[in-house]
Deep mutational scan, measured.
Amino acid sequence: MLDDRARMEAAKKEKVEQILAEFQLQEEDLKKVMRRMQKEMDRGLRLETHEEASVKMLPTYVRSTPEGSEVGDFLSLDLGGTNFRVMLVKVGEGEEGQWSVKTKHQMYSIPEDAMTGTAEMLFDYISECISDFLDKHQMKHKKLPLGFTFSFPVRHEDIDKGILLNWTKGFKASGAEGNNVVGLLRDAIKRRGDFEMDVVAMVNDTVATMISCYYEDHQCEVGMIVGTGCNACYMEEMQNVELVEGDEGRMCVNTEWGAFGDSGELDEFLLEYDRLVDESSANPGQQLYEKLIGGKYMGELVRLVLLRLVDENLLFHGEASEQLRTRGAFETRFVSQVESDTGDRKQIYNILSTLGLRPSTTDCDIVRRACESVSTRAAHMCSAGLAGVINRMRESRSEDVMRITVGVDGSVYKLHPSFKERFHASVRRLTPSCEITFIESEEGSGRGAALVSAVACKKACMLGQ
């Protein structure tokens, strides 16, 4: 009897593995994704193909990295998701002549009506938060230079001027797309009239992360975010950046690689679950690469896999709870928690219980395998993109072996128990001629924006502006 049951459990697990095998990517698959990513990057950089390229390769006008001589107080704003952060950054000489960066910050959550109302409502709310922060720190009387981390696709015309191309991540505030974001912020500050600010720089969160990590390690020339969304930036040779005049030196390019796949480059790798996630998203047909990796989508992918296993009578005796059938019910943090389970399955059992399920031991094991399959594919897909960037940098610099540091931020990278190990191992397999160091950014977005502002202020002083 026991043997029969054991055989049935083994057969069930084997069927589960057959279904989950769809998520496995072979090294040849990853090399294919990497080569296609490089081709799209090239198209994004070139003037004649930029418009139709899915990977936009947006110039950021960040050319210099901090040298350690900029000092002063800077205000930093960070808008990239449902939370908005205001930070005071003091850049100065530390002990023994070292450079020191001290920060104080406060988080504000953005109400739904500000995210989806008008641009005026959104930026009025942001300036209200700045006003509140300055009151708390008794700094209303000071006109501070301000660095703005704005983590949406922007076409820069200068370091302090950028046109919002399109909202992502659930934002829909009308009247912002096609307009200068810094102008919208300046107008809102003017409307309030109770404080003055000098907006000197606007950067993407990947750029802010790279600059913040450069402060720790001067070989950091790539910034990457794996959180709600997924994106990367890197220092490109100016001669390859056709959208900006000049051939000397390097400029940081914001790849906006989340949109890779929007022209069909990933079609052969998309599964039924991916198509369902895409169809029910706020932007169907867009940001397809990001939807395979980002935390906004990972939990939902797992939920759809679990429903398939229920329908195949391989999980929960073929019956799903009402909660499990509800879109968004299986949160991405559950994926991390399930994979963090120590082996007694308590954590998995508790999560499934909150979803109205009474799982068996085998159910718990199957749910864990589903989570591992989805998150491992995410790590491997992400590795193909980064390997594409790094191999490109090595080739354009004609280096036999390139040493490089990548600064990384984002909740999936930082909080998932195995993502970074799987990701690092896969990147290294795909970049055999590179020695890569990964560092995690601390308060990256805010500190990085302030350091970019410090560079901009120093330049302005040198130019006598």
Rank of each mutant, 00 (worst) to 15 (best):
L292I: 15
L357R: 06
W257Y: 05
G81D: 15
N166H: 12
H424F: 03
L307N: 13
D132C: 06
V401G: 09
I436E: 04
T60M: 01
T209A: 06
G170M: 13
F150N: 15
R191D: 01
K161T: 09
E40H: 00
L288G: 13
G285Y: 12
Y234D: 00
A114L: 13
S100M: 15
E312C: 14
E120D: 10
C220E: 00
L2E: 09
L357T: 04
N231M: 07
M210V: 02
F152L: 12
R377N: 00
V310T: 11
D365E: 07
F123W: 11
N166A: 13
F260N: 00
A460L: 10
S69F: 05
M57S: 06
L292V: 13
R429G: 12
N231K: 08
C364T: 09
G444E: 10
K39F: 09
N313F: 11
R368C: 04
K140Y: 03
A188P: 04
R345T: 08
E245D: 09
D132H: 09
D4E: 05
K56I: 02
L463S: 14
K172R: 05
E237T: 01
S212Y: 10
D132A: 03
G97Q: 04
E236N: 00
M34I: 07
S212P: 00
I436C: 12
S383V: 05
A53L: 03
R403S: 11
A454L: 14
S418Y: 07
G385D: 01
V452A: 10
V389M: 04
M107A: 09
N350D: 15
L352Y: 02
G72E: 00
A387S: 08
G193C: 11
S109Q: 10
K102F: 14
P153L: 13
I163W: 13
E93Q: 06
S212M: 01
Y413K: 03
Y289C: 15
K172N: 12
K291A: 15
A21P: 09
E242M: 01
K459E: 11
K136V: 07
T376W: 05
N391P: 02
E96W: 09
D194G: 10
K56R: 10
E128G: 08
V226I: 04
A11P: 15
T103V: 08
R392N: 15
M298R: 08
V154F: 10
V16W: 15
L324Q: 01
E290W: 13
